[in-house]
Amino acid sequence: MVEVRETELPAIGKKFTIETGAGETVVIVVRLTGEREVYRFTEDKDIPVSETTFTEEEARTIGSILVGSYFLPVQETAVQLLMKEMAMEWVKVEAGSILDNKTIGELAIRRRTGVSVISILRKGKVIPNPLPKHKMREGDTIIVVGTNEQVKAFLTLVEKPIEKTPRKPATESAEKSED
């Protein structure tokens, strides 16, 4: 157990003194204003060899690194990995699209392309996790998730009628996902 000596510094804050195993003294002053001053004393116990000051936020971050509970970087790599392998696509249902007036089940979207429809946006409202019986209508935006290949397959499926009409709804939505 490391001994921590706590001292009151009126009008300044609280002082915590710790002797390390290496014979150094570390003093941490938590100011009333929230800043943390950290001092390191080596041979001279009355003049520090170095000093630095952290804001409250910096102190919290550094503190969590020191106790080993700083998991944020791990999460970030996981998210990056996820983003590399997976894609999400917003597709607007245009008039004449094969999606128009069909249910998810009728089109067998997942079986044919592999993507899952995770949401339908209709007139500013969100329908999360729609069921196969949900009908898609002109003006809806549907959100699909899958691997890059699956999403590409889905876009090809949707674009089929576009070969007849010169409209390209998928291009617009592809740009959106790159944002």
């Binding site: 002082k15 003093v27 116990k45």
Partner: peptide, 13 residues
């Protein structure tokens, strides 16, 4: 940056 100096506690007292 004198708050950790040993005399500061006494000074403030």
């Amino acid at each position: 940056k004198r708050s950790a100096y040993p005399e500061t506690e006494c000074l403030l007292g």
